[in-house]
Design a protein around this nucleic acid. Sequence first.
DNA 1: CGAGTGAATCGTAATGATTCCTGTTTCAGG
DNA 2: CCTGAAACAGGAATCATTACGATTCACTCG
Lengths: 138, 138
Amino acid sequence: MTLDEAWRILQEKQFKRTKNRDTILQFFSENDRYLTALEVKNFMEEDNPGISFDTIYRNLSTFSDLGILEETDLNGDRHFRMQCDPGVHHHHFICTACGKTRSISHCPMEMITVNLPDYEVEGHKFEIYGKCPLCVAK
Amino acid sequence: MTLDEAWRILQEKQFKRTKNRDTILQFFSENDRYLTALEVKNFMEEDNPGISFDTIYRNLSTFSDLGILEETDLNGDRHFRMQCDPGVHHHHFICTACGKTRSISHCPMEMITVNLPDYEVEGHKFEIYGKCPLCVAK
DNA sequence: CGAGTGAATCGTAATGATTCCTGTTTCAGG
DNA sequence: CCTGAAACAGGAATCATTACGATTCACTCG
């Protein structure tokens, strides 16, 4: 997702355009991988030393709710990345060394829900972990 | 997995037979679902009020390492359940209401790794969330 | 069977991520 | 430019999890 698309969504929902939101989105648009709140904070402190975790988490949650960011739990910590393909269902390979991701378009759900009659499926999680070609080379 | 199988593994690896480990395994063998450390602690306090979290987590981690328990992160918290089919790769449907699980034998990995040449796959996570037939009925 | 040894445990303190609270600042609209 | 609502800063609180020194326990061997 581009910065413009993100801001279009935010303004449509009446969210204000603030410096902090700009900086956060900027950071995500430059980093094509899952990031933690701490990484975001470290980046933001460069030009806003007093930034608070409250601000970070509030905005990350907002962005996640609006579908601007994708969110996942890795080792019990929340991680966020720019929504890579809005509206298109997909999964990720996640590099455990550098954090970079690769989209996986195949989703196993259709094949499986057939075998779950009477079950009410609400969601699912499918992620593949390993080393990307670049990190394998090292 | 049965209690006997679990103890066979533990004794093979020279782990001592303690009251706490007995109680923990007992609890898991009676509850066919993912449990938190807190749930385990609450159960154990009935006959051991002074039980410490250190003991709980240490043993849960040990059991998980030995393949006696299966472990997963749900909403950022560690959850454990008795290994249901040792040695046989499978996934789970997890009921978000009662926590009960149902094994899913189908695994989408073969189909996908083909499309990840040069990637080094270390692991994957596939879980389905929703309501089981019993909880749907309510 | 009873002492010795290292594993296991207890009790509590520390940690790290996340959330909450309160007063202050900033944004957008009139 | 003024104003109310949204957003923010700073710090305290919470929750799960881990760490640690002191103590107890399970098993071994004499």
